[in-house]
Design a protein around this nucleic acid. Structure first.
Lengths: 99, 99
DNA sequence: CATGTTGTTCGTAATTTTACGAACAAAGGT
DNA sequence: ACCTTTGTTCGTAAAATTACGAACAACATG
């Protein structure tokens, strides 16, 4: 009877980020935001074939995972990468993938 | 009225891999297998605090995503990284994360 | 102050995920 | 043949995900 290991904190955090990346729409948003500084969700809504409420849910998930952040710029909201957490995600995946 | 873009194939494939990575247990398995050549699911079952049927489901998801493969070595099954797809995942994430 | 724009929240529904134990199948050893 | 080991599949249940439209809130503009 061996002791049951629990997954490490790093694995949990990496899994959390991976889960947030685990949808094409969210990958699209992340890729956009990591390549240009910012965007407005209206722009995304114009480009993506989903209801704006659905987009809002996806953005919320990315926010909750800590990968993006929103800044009010009335009447719109400007979304950017959360640089600190993005950096952490980069490092976690870099280590994980041995690259 | 702008045309609705659809997410790219790369984004879909990266999202598929990310989704498979989106659980601590699956991260644990992938990390183990990417650092050592292979393992038997019995070893995993000993170490992880989940039912073996649950582990079997997680392994199936990793298989379905193409990240691992199993080879029968009776009475056990030897699991390894699927090197080809792992390489693709590495490249996709490398590009995506700019690393 | 009324109106329009922007994006979130609510309500709902269908599907998927996660988890467990029980039952089963495959194969080797006795 | 019987039993043991190994891992999958089945049945089930609870929770989470994905999606939509309608309603709402915040705020700027006419």
């Amino acid at each position: 009877m061996s002791a049951k290991l629990v997954t490490t904190d790093k694995q949990k955090r990496a899994a959390r980020y991976a889960k947030a990346m685990g949808h094409p729409v969210r990958m699209y948003v992340l890729e956009l935001l990591s390549n240009q500084s910012c965007c407005y969700s209206g722009d995304l809504s114009d480009d993506l074939p989903i209801a704006k409420s659905t987009l809002s849910q996806h953005l919320k998930e990315l926010k909750d995972a800590g990968l993006i952040q929103g800044e009010i710029e009335s009447p719109r909201i400007k979304y950017c990468i959360n640089k600190e957490n993005w950096k952490e995600a980069q490092q976690l995946f870099k280590q994980f993938l041995n690259i």
